[in-house]
């Protein structure tokens, strides 16, 4: 039923002696003693490993046999044209969609067992911004997963939320109603909520979509800090110009996986043509010239 029932026993069986590296991440992580990201102590697991994921909406394929391999500590961009299945892939990884075939593992185990290692930053348009809730309240929601049923967040949860808000430069806005924020500020609140989750893997759906320059800088710094801390980030990304600058790895997707790997190897003009090529005659045509150009 609850996240605790699912996650608890799986980690309880892990060998504490196997815990190594990233000791602090483990300590303020799920608090099981072992490295939560590496329950079996093998160390070589992929942070996110989706294999042969196939998914169809009403028999129309959205993802065909897609693999996603995200090494631990990578900042990975998922790139592709509209309708390529980027968000679908992310939602499948999160267990929000059930694939017709294939599966997803987070550090070698099913998502349901590793839920507490994953934080999700949804698209801004996906929530009700007129909801009667304040900035601090939204960020505190990030602690709900660790609370279990019935228990309410208390002072320590609030402190953690405030710390996360400070991390994204939003500490002065904690009492604001969320609709009174700019788009970039809303995005930073979502990021803070994910930070509170203190996860190992951060899945973000278009974090840079429609944000101001300040927010873009904040997000980039945040991504680097997360990476320095050994965390993994997977983000759906639209702006081909900034892929090289912001990310270490990339997966090019268009219903099927076109290419993946470190940005230097996979983010090539040839691969981009393969990814966007089929669509250039269609919706991508207007934007193709400046977008498909490989960044210098």
């Amino acid at each position: 039923m609850s996240a605790r029932a699912d996650g608890g026993p799986a980690r309880a069986g892990a060998d504490p002696a196997a815990s190594r590296a990233n000791a602090d991440a483990a300590a303020n992580g799920a608090g099981t003693g072992a490295d939560p990201a590496d329950p079996d102590g093998r160390g070589e697991l992929l942070a996110v490993h989706a294999t042969d994921v196939t998914l169809a909406y009403q028999q129309r394929p959205v993802l065909w046999d897609v693999d996603l391999e995200v090494p631990r500590g990578a900042l990975m961009a998922i790139v592709g044209p509209n309708g390529a299945g980027k968000t679908t892939l992310l939602r499948t990884v999160l267990g929000l969609l059930r694939p017709a075939a294939g599966g997803v593992r987070i550090f070698g185990r099913p998502y349901a067992e590793q839920r507490r290692l994953v934080a999700y930053v949804p698209q801004r348009s996906s929530v009700d911004w007129d909801f009667p809730t304040t900035v601090l309240d939204v960020v505190t929601m990030g602690t709900y997963g660790g609370l279990g049923w019935v228990r309410r967040p208390g002072a320590s949860e609030r402190r953690r939320a405030q710390a996360a808000l400070a991390q994204v430069g939003m500490q002065d806005y904690e009492a604001r109603q969320i609709s009174q924020l700019s788009g970039g500020q809303q995005q930073r609140v979502f990021l803070a909520r994910a930070l509170v989750q203190d996860a190992q893997v951060y899945l973000m759906d278009e974090p840079f979509q429609g944000v101001d320059a300040t927010t873009e800088r904040t997000i980039v710094e945040l991504l680097r800090a997360l990476r320095a801390d050994g965390r993994t980030v997977v983000a759906v990304h639209h702006d081909l110009q900034t892929v090289r600058e912001y990310f270490t790895h990339v997966t090019l997707l268009n219903v099927r996986r076109i290419a993946d790997g470190p940005v230097a190897e996979a983010f090539t003009e040839a691969n981009l043509r393969l990814t966007y090529g089929g669509r250039m005659a269609g919706i991508g045509a207007a934007r193709a010239p400046d977008h498909a150009e490989p960044p210098a």
Binding site: S2, A3, V127, F131, T133, M141
Partner: peptide, 14 residues
Amino acid sequence: LLSFDPDFAATLGM
């Protein structure tokens, strides 16, 4: 959480 952001609730295992 369900009323505000049901997807996020689901990712938390609710």
